[in-house]
Computed example of a mutant assay.
Amino acid sequence: MTDNPLKTLTAAGQAIWLDYLHQDILKTGELQRLIADDGLTGLTSNPSIFEKAIGDGASYDARIAKLASGGKTQTKDLYEAIAIADIQGACDQFRPTWDRLKGRDGYASLEVSPDLANDTQGTVEEARRLWAAVDRPNLMIKVPGTKAGTPAIRQLIGEGINVNVTLLFALQAYLDVAEAHTAGLEDFKAAGGNVAKVHGVASFFVSRIDTAIDKKIDEKLKTADDATAARLKAVRGRVAIANAKVAYQRYLQTLATPRWKTLAVAGAAPQRLLWASTGTKDPAYSDVLYIETLIGPDTVNTMPPKTLDAFRDHGKVAPTLTQDPAAAEATLKEADALGLDLDGVTAALVDDGVRLFAKAFDDLLKAVDDKRRRLGDKTAA
């Protein structure tokens, strides 16, 4: 029998997180099975995930009815009570992993409201509140890597709060949040804090870049001459991977600086790069494309259940993330030369990501409110 590819992935230095949360996986032992059998070491949630979990079916109805009858009548209070309890449950199930790895992994992530993506102080205040409410050392608070989110990241890390930076697409945005994380650790250390206890990840969204760039390529192919068409086809499906590989090279360069080495001596752990949005969108591509091409040490890949299952079934593990970084740089230069405007695409993807998460959050609150009203009507009847 061959080894489980997911376990082999862990042996290669890449952590596996699940991009999914539902109370059922906490209650049925499914999450424990994934931890034991697949080497899962973390979990992420977001408004879209909670909207699907709570809105679909009747799984959460009893909890909503109980919370509402107990005085939780405001929709956001109801949602937060459910989300906090589920995240606490996930943190508790990952706690043995966190203990075994001495805090280097074993985290569950909870997102601040997407409505605060452009509000620095609002983000800081909500992150503090959620951190205190969940009250687990292996929690990460998800903060978007927007211009307003970046100073919030420094503030929160500087207070000893673990941060999962989300919605990263552009290299410069990554460098900005990496700087915020480092500066936050320095602030925490200067205030007498133990930097070994503060952890973070920087979540690069991968497949969405290819979706947007490939759309531009397909448009250009309609009018391109043969030579240009060949060049366009050569970069199709490669830009997001190249972007991630270049980001990893920047990460390695950061670790080599005297500034970081000073923090490392004090026990600081690096802000790991996390590959998000790794489910393949284009059916022409392998369903494990964004796993197999981005395998490298001290990184995280957060997979939706379908992708996790696919990699377990037929994934191949090799040290791909550090293979031929010069080719990755060349791919980005070629994309620029072809007028694919990666900078413009990534900027638009941030705005689109904020909008989509905000809509999912609104849909989530509506689903909770609809259920509260319907369950209230049943109780009254």
Score class of each variant (00 low, 15 high):
Ser59Leu: 09
Gly122Ile: 05
Asn301Gln: 03
Phe311Asn: 14
Leu9Trp: 04
Ala58Leu: 08
Leu308Glu: 13
Glu186Met: 12
Leu130Lys: 05
Met140Ile: 08
Gly160Gln: 09
Arg372Ser: 15
Gln32Gly: 08
Gly89Gln: 14
Thr280Ser: 14
Leu294Lys: 01
Leu273Asn: 12
Leu185Gly: 02
Thr322His: 00
Val177Pro: 07
Thr320Phe: 09
Asp19Cys: 01
Glu125Pro: 10
Glu159Pro: 11
Glu334Thr: 13
Asn118His: 14
Met140Glu: 07
Gly89Ile: 10
Phe357Ser: 09
Phe169Val: 04
Asp187Glu: 06
Leu338Gly: 13
Ile84Arg: 03
Glu186Gly: 06
Glu111Leu: 04
Leu252Cys: 05
Gln253Lys: 12
Pro47Arg: 12
Asn164Thr: 13
Glu179Gly: 07
Ile217His: 06
Pro144Gly: 09
Ile84Gly: 05
Gly149Ala: 04
Arg355Met: 11
Asp3Leu: 09
Thr257Met: 04
Thr41Met: 07
Arg373Asp: 12
Ala327Arg: 12
Glu186Ser: 10
Pro305Met: 04
Leu308Met: 09
Ala276Asp: 02
Ala36His: 01
Glu159Ile: 01
Gly192Val: 04
Gln23Trp: 14
Leu43Arg: 04
Asp99Arg: 03
Met303Gln: 15
Trp131Glu: 11
Glu80Tyr: 10
Ile87Tyr: 06
Ile16Thr: 11
Pro5Asp: 10
Arg208Asn: 06
Leu171Gln: 11
Lys52Pro: 08
Gly103Lys: 04
Thr150Asp: 03
Ser203His: 12
Ala284Lys: 15
Val265Ser: 15
Tyr60Ile: 13
Leu349Ser: 01
Pro258Gln: 07
Tyr79Ser: 12
Asp105Tyr: 02
Gly55Tyr: 06
Ala83Cys: 09
Pro47Glu: 08
Gly13Asp: 00
Val239Ile: 11
Gln253His: 09
Leu185Arg: 11
Gly42Ser: 02
Met1Ile: 11
Ala152Gln: 14
Gly103Ala: 04
Ser109Phe: 11
Asp210Met: 02
Asp336Asn: 11
Ile35Phe: 07
Ala85Ile: 08
Ile16Ala: 01
Thr262Arg: 15
Val350Thr: 13
Glu125Ala: 15
Gly57Lys: 13
Trp131Asp: 14
Lys27Arg: 13
Trp17Ile: 00
Ala68Arg: 09
Thr257Gln: 10
Ala191Thr: 04
Lys359Ser: 07
Lys371Thr: 07
Phe94His: 02
Thr293Met: 00
Gly296Ala: 03
Leu156Arg: 07
Leu130Tyr: 06
His199Arg: 11
Trp260Cys: 05
Thr331Leu: 04
Val265Pro: 13
Leu294His: 00
Ile54Asn: 10
Thr44Lys: 02
Leu168Arg: 10
Asn118Glu: 13
Ala224Val: 00
Asp176Arg: 10
Ala183Glu: 11
Phe50Lys: 07
Arg33Trp: 01
Gly353Leu: 00
Thr223Trp: 00
Gly237Asp: 02
Asn164Leu: 12
Trp131His: 15
Trp275Ala: 01
Gly122Leu: 05
Asn46Ala: 05
Gly106Thr: 02
His181Ile: 08
Leu34Val: 02
Asp176Leu: 09
Leu342Gln: 12
Glu159Asn: 08
Tyr79Val: 02
Asp176Ser: 13
Asp369Val: 01
Ile82Trp: 10
Leu78Cys: 15
Phe50Trp: 09
Asn194Pro: 01
Lys7Glu: 07
Asp56Tyr: 09
Arg372Tyr: 14
Val195Ile: 05
Lys371His: 05
Ala202His: 14
